[in-house]
């Protein structure tokens, strides 16, 4: 099968992007590396969100719960791992990071399994409210647990450097992207889309609806869990209200909607768009920034519900149709 021009272009862009991401810390200041981490974190979150909600149409409004759980585990286990487990100290700050990341991944997956099974039984707006409720519920439980232990936030000293975190996040963002990409192209993904378009019809066709939904839910939870675990190491400080902030879930959704939620490439646009916007406005005019986000969100939902990527796809299709219509042999 010959590779089309589109695929070659896509491949080249991908290579260029990866090169840019790898080279970034060597080209720019510490501050911009931090910005890079910010962008990569959101790419990882949003791509994961898309795997569940973009594909199945079950909008999860509580996805922050996985990131928060990961962060909590990282903070709680920080001093727990015994130092004797061969500290591979040099680059990534020790085994305890890897161990906590693995625990975070497993815990997020388990939470998704536990929560997903009952939650996925309800549809549409009920699911949205329910996931939001679950996330807030967990948040306040953690708040109360910490308060009960008289801890108002936890400190983690001796974490990895910004550059090290950057490369870890880049790897996770890449994994998330690939996950969304391959799910989108797989039979599993086709099944998920079928569920989104008409769940009952999909079930009639023989698609194992419950199993697919649950799988998507679990898959979408793991990476946010790990990313959340690492993210608390950025500032070295864990605080439950920050880590479980529902605005994080909302931002994931905004980025996916604005960039395009049906395809792995969409969130990239959404993340960059919002990240640049926030970088320009948030520090100086936080209220205006929020108001602008509200306006932009409404405009996108009404004007471009398939997001930036959806628009790009649409216009390229239109061009292809026009080109085909102009060809002499076609019927018109």
């Amino acid at each position: 099968m010959t590779t089309s021009r589109k695929e070659i272009t896509g491949g080249l862009i991908a290579v260029a992007l990866i090169a840019l991401v790898i080279a970034w810390p060597f080209l720019t200041s510490q501050y911009l590396v931090g910005f890079g981490i910010f962008v990569l974190v959101w790419v990882a979150y949003t791509e994961s969100w898309v795997v569940l909600s973009g594909m199945t149409g079950y909008f999860s409004f509580g996805h922050v719960v996985f990131a928060g759980l990961g962060g909590y585990l990282m903070a709680a286990l920080w001093m727990v791992w015994p130092e004797e487990i061969a500290p591979y100290g040099v680059v990534i700050g020790g085994v305890r990071i890897w161990a906590s990341m693995i625990v975070a991944a497993i815990a997020s997956g388990l939470l998704a399994l536990l929560v997903g099974y009952p939650c996925l039984r309800v549809r549409g707006p009920y699911f949205v409210i329910l996931t939001f409720g679950v996330a807030e519920f967990v948040k306040f439980i953690v708040v109360n647990i910490e308060a009960g232990m008289s801890k108002s936030g936890r400190l983690m000293l001796g974490g990895p450097s910004t550059e090290a975190l950057y490369f870890l996040m880049a790897a996770l963002a890449l994994v998330a992207f690939l996950l969304a990409f391959f799910v989108g192209r797989s039979r599993f993904g086709a099944g998920l889309r079928a569920i989104r378009e008409d769940e009952d019809a999909a079930e009639t066709m023989g698609i194992p609806v419950t199993r697919y939904k649950l799988t998507a839910f679990v898959l979408s939870a793991i990476i946010p869990g790990v990313v959340g675990a690492l993210y608390v190491l950025r500032g070295g400080y864990f605080e439950p209200l920050q880590v479980f902030d529902p605005k994080i879930s909302l931002t994931m959704i905004c980025m996916a909607i604005m960039g395009g939620s049906d395809d792995a490439r969409g969130p990239l646009f959404g993340v960059v768009f919002l990240a640049v916007l926030s970088e320009l406005l948030w520090a100086k005019f936080p209220l205006i920034y929020q108001i602008l986000i509200g306006i932009v969100l409404i405009s996108f939902v009404l004007g471009a519900p398939d997001g930036i990527w959806g628009r790009i796809v649409q216009s390229s299709r239109k061009r292809a149709m026009n080109a085909a219509a102009k060809k002499p042999g076609s019927a018109s």
């Binding site: 909008f59 949205v128 108001i291 509200g294 969100l297």
Partner: peptide, 14 residues
């Protein structure tokens, strides 16, 4: 339903 939620969220934020 999903869309209206987002539109209302935008309104709320504004």
């Amino acid at each position: 339903e999903a869309n209206s939620l987002l539109v209302f969220f935008g309104i709320s934020v504004i």
